[in-house]
Amino acid sequence: MATGALGAALLDKENVGLAKPLDGKAGLGAKRPLDGGVAGGDAKQRKSALQPLSANVVAGGSAGAASAGPLSAPCQPVAMGPPPPRAAASGRAPSGVEAAPAARERSTSGAAAAPRRWQLTDFDIGKPLGRGKFGNVYLARERKSKYIVALKVLFKNQLQQSNVEHQLRREIEIQSHLRHPNILRLYGYFYDATRVYLILEYAARGELYKELQRAGSFDEGRTATYIASLAKALIYCHSKHVIHRDIKPENLLLGLNGELKIADFGWSVHAPNSRRKTLCGTLDYLPPEMVEGSYHDAAVDVWSLGVLCYEFLYGQPPFEAAGHSETYKRILRVDLKFPASPERSDGVKHLIRKLLVKNPKERMPLEQVLQHPWILANADPAVLQRAT
């Protein structure tokens, strides 16, 4: 596909995504400039066409979010296990985020109760944490274990109107099966007549993108630690035949101890055959094979890791340009330039060059990223020594 034609199709859109975006308009999406600043206390973000189902799980309410009643005790992360596993439940709940009547299902014989299923009465609902296109995120506490979680409430009618039910099912299926310290846990879900509820791990230190905006850029030690953490998480995902396809700062959260967590699997796919052709993700992070409309595989995540490393160090993505068409051209040429300021080491520039290679087969494997001299010299040893 010619870059000019593709660039024209992206005008006045915010995200790269489906052939029919969620707003129902024709054409694909585009990018959001990094220097968007802060409005009303919330940073502007490059959002994928599929609104994150597990993003914005952060401390503090979003601007303009309706206030919710406080919990009976302060919501602080506690050292205990996740809420006990239960099955997804249907049933009905009154309008608004209020408690639903308790309900237990019994076996056909009526002799014994079936496993207890999640419902809204199992949680104390706290302050709102964020708003999305399809619903809101609330701080919550599971009543029995007192475990703190983030509860995302999605409205069925909005999901149906945008025709993304299948993407929600896919995201739940993928994320609920992933167990890695650098991947946000999806503990479970339940639903009623009008809403779907996702029970998510609470990332106490919030969005990495906002931290990057505040800092402008990260030093090499912090960047190396984040890249090593992500490399381990992506190695794990790829071992499960999961391709993420939308690695970027907005999709990363920070846990209580500052550990990085991948939080949005809206564009991820389980692809045992490893060859896909869907154009998805965010413009600045698209690899050349997606721009060209060619088949892609797990190597798209390797490219995104290189773009992310560059953005961490310089505060902007490497191929950013004034227009969408020019950005596409720079990606296809791999027009990689390193600013003189801030000054960065030759070691990290070497790593970035090895990740941002046009031919997917020639990109540095993630296992070799963890053995790169710059990573070994700068990343937190505790992260490098961790088994996974």
Rank of each mutant, 00 (worst) to 15 (best):
W118A: 01
I148S: 01
G96T: 14
G69H: 10
V97A: 05
Q175F: 05
W118Q: 01
G91R: 08
S72T: 03
S90F: 14
A100V: 03
E98K: 09
S72R: 14
R106C: 04
G188N: 03
A59K: 08
M80D: 06
A111Q: 11
G132K: 10
N163R: 13
S62R: 12
L178Q: 06
R169P: 01
V196M: 05
A100S: 14
A140F: 05
Y147L: 03
L120W: 05
A193Y: 02
N163A: 15
E173L: 07
Y197L: 01
Y197F: 09
A65M: 12
F155G: 02
P181G: 02
G60W: 10
F190Q: 00
F134L: 11
P85K: 13
S107F: 10
A113C: 11
T121G: 03
A93H: 04
A103E: 14
G135L: 01
A93E: 14
A68K: 11
L178C: 10
D192S: 00
T121H: 12
L168P: 03
I172H: 00
A111I: 03
Y191Q: 12
P70D: 02
I125D: 06
G188Y: 05
I172E: 01
L159E: 03
P101L: 15
A73Q: 07
R104S: 15
G130E: 06
G132S: 12
A88I: 07
G60A: 08
V196P: 00
P101G: 14
V153Q: 09
S176W: 08
E105V: 04
L151R: 05
L139R: 12
